[in-house]
């Protein structure tokens, strides 16, 4: 089965991940810009990072027959540094023009501070101005419900197109409000701290699937890209058809990401029997 990994931090992973993903049906990965585990001090560091994910990483993925796309942003944790954020934002439009860059992300909230909110607004404004997709991070664990509510409040006060916005890391307590507001919702599968493969399939069975995305993120922390495949197996073992699985794990990413013409992978229909 062909799978798209819509949220994957390749720079934190080894080539073995690419190889194993290719062997398990992954045809494309999308890499949002994220926190490196420490707060970067210089805008130039971000610019080099953006170049890495926009120019170099696609070549590494291509060695395994996987397409690689990226997003650019200052992540919420580093958005506390207003000066750095403003300078990176000033240089971001150059990267939005790169042939594999799909939009602005991951922006969003971490502790929902005034500086984070200002950064989120600036990122979303830039995305809308340049007709870009947006990937929004919502906070972890105990900050999640409040942070997601704040994200929705910020967006409600802006002139945005919900079709172009993906709010990520939703769980049982936040998915309904995201879908009700008309946005795409992403479930991130982590071994411990986010959604699990089984809980994700529960959510897929409970809510309309048209605007749902599933990803495993996979970064430098405790994470595993193959939680995505685990959820595919869980979905199938509950009796859902192969085509239904393809709709979620391949075609939904195509439909959302395909709003950017740089994304040229088309939804597929499986002919069974």
């Amino acid at each position: 089965m062909q799978i798209i990994q819509p949220h994957y931090h390749a720079i934190a992973r080894t080539a073995q991940d690419y190889e194993r993903m290719a062997m398990s049906g992954v045809v494309a990965v999308c890499e949002p810009a994220f926190w490196a585990g420490f707060d970067r001090r210089h805008p130039e560091t971000f610019i080099d990072y953006f170049a890495q994910i926009a120019e170099f990483e696609p070549t590494r993925a291509a060695e395994f027959g996987i397409r690689h796309f990226c997003w650019v942003a200052v992540n919420p944790k580093e958005a506390e540094n207003r000066e750095l954020t403003q300078e990176v934002l000033r240089q971001m439009p150059e990267f939005l023009q790169k042939p594999t860059c799909l939009g602005v992300g991951e922006t969003g909230l971490h502790k929902s501070t005034p500086n984070e909110i200002e950064s989120l607004q600036a990122h979303v404004e830039m995305a809308m101005k340049h007709d870009q997709l947006v990937l929004i991070h919502t906070p972890h664990l105990s900050d999640k419900a409040h942070g997601t509510k704040r994200v929705l409040e910020v967006l409600a006060g802006m002139d945005v197109n919900p079709d172009k916005i993906w709010i990520d890391h939703v769980e049982e307590q936040t998915i309904e409000s995201v879908l009700d507001a008309g946005y795409w919702a992403g479930m991130t599968l982590y071994p411990v701290t986010k959604c699990s493969p089984r809980r994700a399939v529960d959510i897929l069975e409970k809510y309309p699937r048209e605007r749902l995305l599933v990803n495993s993120s996979a970064d430098w922390g405790p994470s595993d890209p193959f939680t995505l495949q685990e959820s595919v197996v869980e979905f199938r073992r509950r009796g859902h058809s192969l085509q239904d699985a393809v709709e979620i794990y391949h075609n939904n990413p195509c439909r959302f990401l395909g709003q950017n013409p740089k994304w040229d992978i088309q939804p597929i229909i499986i002919s069974e029997g």
Binding site: E172, V192, T193, S196, R198, R199, D202, E205
Partner: peptide, 20 residues
């Protein structure tokens, strides 16, 4: 704590799955 939190969520989700 976080691993126990995860495991309890799995139990909760399993019981929800049954109710559904």
């Amino acid at each position: 704590y976080l691993e126990a939190r995860r495991d309890l969520l799995e139990v909760a989700a399993m019981l929800d799955r049954y109710d559904q």
